[in-house]
Computed example of a mutant assay.
Amino acid sequence: MTTASAEEFETHRPRLFGLAYRMLGSAEEAEDTVQDAYLRFSDIDRDRIEHPAAWLAKVVTNLCLTRLTSARARREQYVGPWLPEPVITSDGTLGPLESAEQRDAVSLAMLVLLERLTPTERAVYVLREAFAYGHREIAEALELTEANCRQLYRRAVRRVEEREARFESTPERQEELVRSFLMAARDGDLGGLEKLLAADVVWFSDGGGKVRAALRPIEGREKVFRFLAGASRTFLTGVDFTVVESNGSTAVAAWAGDELLSVVAFELRDGLITQAWAVVNPEKLAFVRRQLARVA
Score class of each variant (00 low, 15 high):
E245G: 10
A199E: 15
R289Y: 00
V79Q: 09
M1Q: 14
S5L: 12
L94C: 08
R15D: 13
T66V: 12
L215Q: 15
L65Y: 09
W82T: 03
S205V: 01
S70P: 01
V160C: 03
H51I: 11
G248M: 02
Y21L: 04
E146V: 12
G230L: 04
S232W: 00
R74I: 13
R74P: 03
R155F: 01
L193D: 05
A37L: 01
F204V: 01
R290P: 03
L193E: 04
F287W: 10
E8D: 11
A105Y: 00
T250K: 02
L113I: 08
E10S: 15
P84R: 06
G192C: 01
F17Y: 10
T274V: 15
D270G: 08
D45Y: 11
V79D: 11
D47H: 09
V211H: 05
V124Q: 01
D47Y: 13
F235Y: 12
N281I: 04
R72G: 13
L196A: 09
S5D: 14
T237A: 13
A276H: 08
V264F: 03
L261K: 09
L197F: 04
G188M: 11
L285Y: 01
R216K: 15
R72Y: 03
I49C: 09
A27V: 03
V178Y: 03
A265F: 03
A73T: 11
S262L: 00
I88S: 06
I49D: 05
A6P: 13
S26V: 00
